[in-house]
Design a protein around this nucleic acid. Structure first.
Length: 936
RNA sequence: GCCCCGGUGGUGGAAUUGGUAGACACGCAGGACUUAAAAUCCUGUGUCUUCGCGGACGUACGGGUUCAAGUCCCGUCUGGGGUACCA
């Protein structure tokens, strides 16, 4: 029987589905192991070969852990709310639900074909009302919570209300909007319901607030920062502008410190943790007040360099700063007003476009230096951001590059206060000295101190003089939570007398209503405003018209898989307690600062409220690299219907055209297929080299428009899924990005055929046809060599899986099969354990051969073979002998020899004598069982 | 600019704690089987040099540490990713 992968793979996929082979049990004696993939957005294009890369890796781990005796949870689902389906709906009028369901069906078929061991009974879809009911429920919990800094966790809003009733807000230490006024208990009682609601809103973790958002007029929606690239929307490339809008937001900033601290407990890559640290952007410094000349008002700045306070040569305010109006003197009024208007109207895009253009204007006013009393001019500049710190900076041009550029541009003084490697005040020296190293000079009481010590002392002095205090700032902003779109979870809120109320939990889910069109209304309201007039709470009160952003559903889905059918809660406490954290999470690095921050945030929140026990969603995380496409080109002679082979293109004026990679094999074009592809090439003339048309090639992103998309289906059709799985792993390290090419696929396919032949061979050796050979496995005792080959492989494979080095495992399997083929080994005692090792990688062929060996149960839970060191011990060791570190020859010596005996053997050796030419080596180094090195 | 990760044959890549660089696979060349092809099998394949034995060089580049460096340290070049006026 030949290796008929098609039949084998179909049979076993049907078997697994029918027998629910991979269903996870919610408990039992086995230790649990949770392997999770980032679930896909089901796009219309289906899966391409890049998608399964991570899924194959996680599937190998899941299957391996089952062999190792774990109760494995390995689920899959769909992040099925999203803009593409909505865009499609806008264009075609088809309901996004329909498109989404169709796309999911395609994904499912493609996934099934690859033979993943998912527990499909636990599938979740974020767009399913039974799922988003709980997304909405969690939103309500967040809405009904505030962040208590005293206990450093989220608490129910009811505890805050009680405190307000008792003591007002004087003793409350919360993460809330800045500029909250203080009030007493009596004042609280006297506030109207609307006033109370507004105050509470400033404390809620999910809150309705005014926020500058990235408004995209063309899409009629608000975009997150990570949806904007180069000032235009990532999708569609439309211009984006800054606009102040009422928006639902999440107070993720309350969790900044915990999000930062938690990173230390995680087994994630350094680069990913670093990306999150930068995003959170903690900076320690101090606030400092500058008194305005001729006034009792002050300007408060935030600085991380209080040590350089004697180097301040001006103060810069953001154009939006409150004091701008009152500080401007009469003669500067016109210039300042013009500047402020211009700066405010500059969209984010324009600001980014001319990032290096320095602009600013002098107010005409001065502040007094807090220590020297010297007068310092107040400027306005849009390099200062209104939303960060206090919206004002003390400018120290000698030691801050932005202040430096500003000072240079406007001819302001530059005072050196830190003696570093360069003196910025010297002519010819360009740029500031920003390093936090050096000795303080020109700085009164700080003179002679190191920067670090000067910082401490400066803060101390500032605090004593009550000019300000040490402070920590975070770059992390609250996340806007509303989208003016249709295809998302409705926010479960209604409005009564202009006050937002959360829906009662027993009225969930608030189902997405039908609309006539998926566009904003004429007056700019979101699509949900198009819902029938009956779509009102209690038939009377308007619902919120925004929907949730894409990250809502994905911020807790890992919990739902634990208890997917639960109708009483988002997850039961008991099952959350059983499955706990994700043990291994695999997904793309593009989610480094989006999804992976939000899911950590929600996890911490749910823990604070006692629903789950874990602080972090995923212990270990691996980013699989991107699989890039490899595009092929043909070269058309300009103005003619003539195509030139790549090697000859320099002889002509040509333009390169993308050609569908399915007509190209090893860069050779299938001319007949190509002619049929597009009518305009039907009569084209081809200029060949060596009788072939050679295409040009380039590595690019895999995309439809570049005709370089390769789907797993094609490979599966030609070589089978086991080959696809092995090949994707064989390409290189999981985390590395690499272009897809099928050049080596025959190698892994050949390996599987060779494995098959170990079981189905007449064992005549040498060249043999693929004739009809019977299953032929013997029960003979294995030889020492065969056992060594097997156990070497068990050892390597185990180590490889534990460190997620899947590409090297495949090599090791190849080596093993090569050795067994060489030894003509068809012994059950060797082949049976080998099959178990291989089954996580190539499960179909493993199941089939396992069955042929006489087993009636699936191979999937067969215990992983134990590795026995004894089989690996060699009787002799092949010592490399080198002179001055350069290898000269190798010497086979008994393993029992001691270091001294090895040295003696080497020295007495003929070849050594020849090399030394009678001289004595200065030194001989023998590393036992490793190497011998002589120094001469 | 800053932060992170890389740079090894014609190609993908291996070398886990410093210890025989190039495993495994592709490609290429030659050969066997075949009327032929496919499939399969065998041999060779880092570069230079030599008829050959062999020798020299070799992990982006320049230094250093070490008996020994792809691996550790310093500097430079270069590719990829993240981030961007965050005071």
């Amino acid at each position: 029987m030949e290796y008929n992968f098609k039949e084998i793979e179909n049979n076993w996929q049907a078997y697994w589905a029918k027998n629910k082979t991979f269903a996870a049990k919610d408990g039992g004696d086995k230790p649990k192991y949770y392997v999770l993939d980032m679930f896909p957005y089901p796009s219309g294009a289906g899966l391409h070969v890049g998608h399964p890369l991570g899924y194959i890796a996680s599937d190998i781990v899941a299957r391996y852990k089952r062999h190792k005796g774990f109760n494995v949870l390995h689920p899959m689902g769909y992040d099925s709310f999203g803009l593409p389906a909505e865009q499609y709906a806008i264009q075609t009028g088809q309901h996004p639900k329909i498109t989404t369901e169709n796309n999911i069906a395609v994904y499912r078929r493609q996934l099934d074909k690859i033979g993943f061991s998912f527990d499909w009974d636990r599938e979740v879809r974020t767009s399913d009302p039974a799922y988003y009911k709980w997304t909405q429920w969690i939103f309500i919990q967040i809405f009904n919570s505030w962040y208590n800094k005293a206990t450093d966790k989220a608490e129910p809003i009811s505890s805050l209300i009680s405190e307000f009733e008792l003591n007002g807000n004087k003793k409350v230490n919360a993460c809330c909007d800045e500029d909250e006024k203080s009030f007493s208990a009596a004042e609280w009682q006297a506030f109207s319901e609307k006033e109370q609601s507004d105050i509470l809103m400033a404390y809620r973790i999910a809150y309705l607030g005014e926020a500058f958002v990235n408004w995209c007029p063309a899409l009629g929606t608000v975009l997150a920062n990570d949806e904007i690239k180069d000032g235009v929307s990532e999708r569609g490339g439309h211009p984006v502008e800054r606009k102040l809008m009422k928006q639902w937001s999440m107070r993720i900033s309350a969790y900044a410190q915990r999000l930062l601290d938690g990173l230390d407990t995680l087994d994630w890559t350094d680069s990913l943790k670093e990306a999150q640290r930068n995003w959170i952007g903690k900076s320690e410094g101090t606030s400092l007040k500058f008194t305005i000349q001729g006034s009792n008002k002050t300007i408060e700045v935030f600085t991380t360099r209080p040590d350089t306070v004697f180097g301040v040569s001006f103060v810069t305010l953001a154009p939006e700063h409150d004091l701008v109006g009152s500080l401007t003197t009469l003669e500067n009024k016109a210039a300042v007003e013009a500047y402020v208007t211009q700066a405010k109207n500059r969209s984010e895009r324009e600001r980014q476009a001319d990032i290096n253009k320095i602009t600013g204007v002098f107010t005409g006013s001065y502040v007094e230096h807090p220590f020297t009393g010297k007068l310092i001019p107040i400027w306005i500049g849009d390099y200062v951001l209104a939303g960060y710190g206090t919206g004002a900076v003390m400018a120290v041009p000698a030691h801050d590059s932005r202040d430096y550029s500003f000072a240079k541009h406007f001819g302001l003084p530059i005072l050196e206060v830190v003696k570093g490697t360069t003196d910025v005040t010297q002519s010819g020296v360009e740029g500031s000295y920003d390093a936090k190293e050096g000795i303080l000079i020109n700085s009164d009481f700080l003179n002679g101190l190191q920067v670090k010590d000067a910082m401490k002392l400066a803060i101390q002095e500032i605090e004593i003089k009550q000019l300000g205090k040490g402070k920590v700032n975070f770059r992390l902003r609250d996340a806007v939570f509303g989208r003016q779109r249709y295809w998302g979870e409705p926010i479960p809120v209604y409005y009564k007398n202009d006050i937002p109320y959360a829906l009662p939990e027993n009225e969930l889910p608030l189902v997405l209503p039908e609309v006539d069109k998926y566009l904003p209304t004429e007056d700019g309201e979101p699509p949900l405003a198009r819902a029938a007039s009956s779509w009102k709470y209690k038939g009377e009160f308007d619902y919120e018209h925004s929907t949730m952003p894409g990250w809502a559903g994905s911020s807790w889905y890992f919990l739902r898989y634990m208890d997917p059918k639960n109708s009483e809660g988002f997850v039961s406490k008991q099952l959350a307690g059983y499955w706990k954290q994700v043990d291994l999470y695999i997904g793309g690095s593009e989610h480094a600062t989006g999804h992976l921050l939000y899911v950590r945030f929600w996890t911490k929140f749910l823990k604070d409220l006692g629903y789950i026990d874990i602080e972090e969603p995923a212990k270990k995380l691996i980013n699989q690299g991107m699989i890039q496409g490899r595009s092929n080109f043909v070269y058309r002679v300009n103005g003619e219907n003539k195509l030139v082979s790549a090697g000859l293109k320099n002889n002509y004026e040509v333009s390169a055209l993308h050609v569908d990679v399915s007509f190209v094999n090893n860069d050779v074009l299938d001319i007949e297929a190509f002619k049929k592809w597009r009518d305009d090439f039907k009569n084209a003339e081809f200029i060949l080299e060596d009788g072939k048309y050679i295409c040009g090639a380039e590595v690019e992103k895999m995309s439809k428009s570049k005709y370089n998309v390769v789907t797993p289906d094609d490979i599966g059709e030609k070589f089978g899924s086991d080959t696809l799985r092995l090949y994707e792993m064989f390409l290189g390290p999981l985390e590395q990005s690499k272009p897809w090419n099928t050049n080596g696929i025959t190698g892994v396919h050949g390996f599987l055929k060779k494995l098959w032949r170990l079981f189905y061979s007449s064992l005549q050796g040498g060249a043999q046809g693929a004739g009809d050979v019977a299953f032929n496995v013997s029960n003979d005792e294995p030889t020492k060599g065969e056992l060594k080959a097997l156990h070497k492989t068990i050892k390597k494979i185990t180590e490889d899986i534990e460190r997620f080095s899947f590409n090297t495992s495949i090599s090791n399997f190849m080596i093993c099969v090569n050795e067994l083929t060489e030894a003509k080994c068809n012994k059950k005692a060797i082949l049976e354990p080998l099959l178990i090792c291989l089954s996580p990688y190539a499960p179909h062929i493993a199941e089939e051969l396992w069955k042929q060996l006489g087993h009636t149960e699936s191979i999937s839970t067969a215990p992983f073979p134990d590795f026995n060191e004894a089989y690996l011990v060699d009787d002799s060791i092949n010592y490399p002998v080198s002179v001055n570190g350069k290898l000269k020859f190798t010497l086979e010596l008994p393993a029992t020899l001691t270091v001294q005996e090895v040295e003696a053997e080497v020295m007495n050796n003929e070849q050594t004598q020849k090399l030394l030419e009678g001289k004595q080596p200065k030194k001989v180094i023998v590393v036992h069982k490793k190497i011998v090195n002589m120094v001469v």
